[in-house]
Design a protein around this nucleic acid. Structure first.
Length: 253
DNA sequence: ATGGCTTATTGTATAAGA
């Protein structure tokens, strides 16, 4: 199976890039984040025309996730239960070929110590509780925009960015709980070299200067990890005209 | 220096992203 994740930063704007990428790469599954589209406006037919099915969970302006697949996504579930907090469209999951595909758009958090930062940590707590409900020997792929660079090797300058959003110790410790539970960072299983990024700021010519972060991930349980064949970051879409600031991360197993 | 782009909005400045 080939699985990919890509934060497209508006599916409305990026639809041609996404369709071209699917046609060229033919993944079994593509998890999309930041569609920024209400479900009523989702361009389902564009995917159907190239032989793909898609399940989505979106809202106007912000957030929104969609899972594109060749085979139907089964037992689809949308959203993450959070008491007393309005739902944001950040999770859609379902099974393909017996593999649970958990597509997440983890909150950005804006700034360490802010209300949005607290929301990010709370959302991670709920996600951890959610994944705890599953057996660890089940094939699971938790993939999406995690908005956390797990290690210093995953950021362009660990000194300059130390303690800031996506890099702070508290965020990293929260993420490490998923590893402790039984998920492996599939990209890092097969690629040890530092400074392999999935996101570059639009500003400061960050892509040209490779001032990036590796914040888009595919974390997998042992049955998937044991059969991993390849894992890579496809930087080609980031070089297109009017690109998303994120680029696809892909695994084959 | 918290900017620098990009996207979306009952827009024409503001919010948010990361």
């Amino acid at each position: 199976m080939i699985l990919a994740t890509w934060n497209v930063n508006s599916l409305n704007v990026r639809l041609p890039h996404v369709i071209d990428w699917l046609k060229s790469n033919q993944p079994d599954v593509l998890a999309i984040q930041e569609t920024k589209l209400a479900d009523a406006k989702f361009p389902q037919s564009a995917f159907a025309e190239i032989g793909y099915l898609v399940e989505y969970f979106g809202e106007k302006t912000y957030n929104g996730v969609a899972t594109v697949s060749k085979q139907p996504l089964l037992n689809v579930s949308r959203g993450l239960a959070q008491q007393g907090v309005p739902q944001q469209c950040r999770l859609i999951e379902g099974e393909v070929n017996g593999v649970l595909i958990m597509n997440v758009y983890i909150p950005n958090g804006q700034e360490v110590g802010s209300q949005k930062y607290d929301y990010k940590l709370s959302w991670l707590d709920h996600l951890h509780e959610h994944i705890n409900d599953f057996p660890k020997d089940k094939p699971i792929c938790l993939l999406g925009d995690f908005n956390i660079a797990p290690k210093d090797d995953d950021v362009y300058d660990p000194i300059e960015t130390r303690g800031t959003i996506m890099v702070s110790d508290v965020e990293r410790l929260s993420l490490e709980r998923f590893r402790t539970w039984g998920l492996a960072d599939a990209f890092r299983e097969l690629n040890k070299e530092p400074k392999q990024f999935s996101w570059w700021d639009y500003r400061m010519a960050a892509f040209r200067r490779n001032l990036g972060y590796r914040i888009d991930h595919i974390w997998v349980t042992e049955p998937v990890r044991a059969t991993l064949k390849r894992a890579w970051i496809d930087k080609a879409p980031r070089k297109l005209e009017r690109p998303s600031d994120h680029t696809p991360v892909v695994i084959e197993f």
